[in-house]
């Protein structure tokens, strides 16, 4: 196993770890968005989806542990790589120039840290129910956790919605570089597919941002509202 540790500590191995864990987290972001978009179908659909997820038990925990590990590896590799990068140029240029490095690619650490702060806030809000406890304990007519009403109540708060939208824009920046970049780190490169690989990051970022911000915007505009008869 020593070869594996040596590989993971190397510059290329660390980048491969970033790519693999980044891909896992991206997969989660896509799945999470698709699940949540059921809010547009209605209360029944999204509550049923949430209840189904919770009934998965061991499988759900396996996914959660995988995600937590991916987050930890992604962050620790990022810190190690960034520190190495800072050490590699102890004296910086008096006049620094950039030819083609995108703004998103130069701010990955910042966008990543802000997204991390958002994830913690998001978990406190909707998973642990610390921020809006009353909405979090609500149940629907079938006795299931009322995810629909909880989300709508959360997003009816303009500040909460704006913070979600801002966080999604930063996630978009992060993904626009990260998703294309992971192909390069994994050595997936071919003249025929390179034009697609270059576009896949920005396109994926756009889909994720639009899909996720559509929910708070729809709630703010009143297109998605609390079911009739529910306490608001």
């Amino acid at each position: 196993m020593q070869w594996l540790f040596k590989y993971c500590r190397s510059s290329i191995g660390s980048k491969v770890l970033m790519a693999v864990t980044g891909l896992m987290l991206f997969g989660f972001v896509v799945g999470h968005m698709l699940g949540n978009l059921q809010i547009f179908i209605g209360q029944e659909a999204v509550n049923n989806y949430a209840a189904t997820l919770k009934e998965m038990g061991a499988l759900l925990w396996l996914a959660r542990i995988g995600l937590i590990l991916a987050v930890l590896v992604h962050i620790s590799a990022a810190i190690r790589l960034t520190r190495g990068n800072q050490k590699a140029r102890p004296i910086t240029y008096a006049h620094s120039g950039t030819v083609q490095a995108t703004y998103a690619s130069r701010t990955m650490m910042k966008s990543g840290l802000i997204v991390l702060a958002f994830v913690i806030y998001h978990l406190l809000h909707l998973t642990f129910g610390v921020i809006l406890p009353e909405a979090h304990s609500a149940t629907d007519s079938l006795g299931r956790p009322d995810v629909y009403s909880m989300t709508v109540l959360g997003f009816q708060n303009v500040l909460v919605s704006l913070s979600y939208i801002a966080a999604m824009l930063l996630l978009g920046f992060h993904l626009s570089h990260g998703v294309s970049s992971l192909f390069q780190s994994l050595g997936l490169n071919h003249p025929r597919y390179n034009p697609i690989i270059q576009k896949i990051g920005p396109s994926a970022a756009l889909v994720i941002v639009l899909g996720n911000i559509s929910m708070p915007i729809a709630v703010l505009l009143g297109l998605v509202s609390l079911p009739a008869g529910a306490a608001s």
Binding site: K15, S105, R106, S181, Q184, G187, P191
Partner: peptide, 27 residues
């Protein structure tokens, strides 16, 4: 340092070497 796939190297390389060699090296 470590590559962060920003491709500034390719942009300034006087011999215009493609970053596909970096992908090959990763592989």
């Amino acid at each position: 340092g470590n590559c962060t796939n920003q491709y500034e190297c390719e942009a300034v390389c006087p011999k215009e070497i493609s970053v596909s060699v970096i992908s090959e090296l990763n592989r």
